[in-house]
Computed example of a mutant assay.
Amino acid sequence: MMNEFEKENIFGLGQKNEAYAKYFNKDSFLQPLIAGDDNVDVNVANVTFEPGCRNDWHIHHDGYQLLLVTAGQGWYQEFGKPARHLKAGDAVKINEGVKHWHGATKDSWFAHVAITKGTSEWLEAVSDEEYAKLSEEK
Rank of each mutant, 00 (worst) to 15 (best):
M1L: 13
M2Y: 15
N3C: 09
N3K: 15
E4C: 08
F5E: 06
K7F: 07
E8A: 14
E8P: 04
N9D: 10
N9V: 02
N9A: 11
G14C: 04
G14F: 00
N17A: 09
A21Y: 06
A21F: 07
F24T: 05
N25P: 11
K26I: 04
K26M: 12
K26W: 08
D27H: 08
D27S: 12
S28V: 04
L30C: 10
L30H: 11
Q31G: 05
I34Q: 09
I34P: 03
D37C: 11
D38H: 12
D38A: 14
D38G: 15
N39Y: 13
V42S: 08
V42N: 07
N43F: 05
N43M: 05
N43W: 01
A45N: 11
N46K: 03
T48K: 02
F49D: 00
E50A: 13
E50M: 11
P51R: 06
P51Q: 07
G52N: 09
C53Y: 01
C53A: 15
R54T: 00
N55S: 04
N55M: 07
D56E: 11
D56L: 00
H58A: 06
H58E: 03
I59F: 06
I59W: 05
H60M: 02
H60S: 02
G63Q: 05
Y64S: 11
Q65W: 00
V69A: 03
T70S: 09
A71Y: 04
G72D: 04
G72A: 07
Q73G: 05
Q73F: 08
W75K: 00
Y76W: 06
Q77A: 02
F79S: 13
G80K: 10
G80N: 08
K81S: 07
P82L: 04
A83H: 03
R84I: 14
R84N: 09
R84A: 09
H85R: 14
H85L: 06
K87F: 05
G89D: 06
A91C: 14
A91L: 10
A91F: 09
A91M: 13
V92H: 00
I94S: 00
I94D: 00
H100Q: 06
H100R: 01
H100S: 02
G103V: 01
G103Q: 02
A104S: 11
D107N: 15
S108G: 06
A111K: 00
H112M: 01
A114I: 01
A114K: 01
A114L: 04
K117F: 05
G118Y: 03
G118K: 02
T119E: 15
T119S: 14
S120K: 05
S120N: 11
L123H: 07
A125V: 06
A125T: 12
S127T: 15
Y131N: 05
K133S: 13
L134Q: 09
E136D: 15
E136H: 14
E136M: 14
K138Y: 14
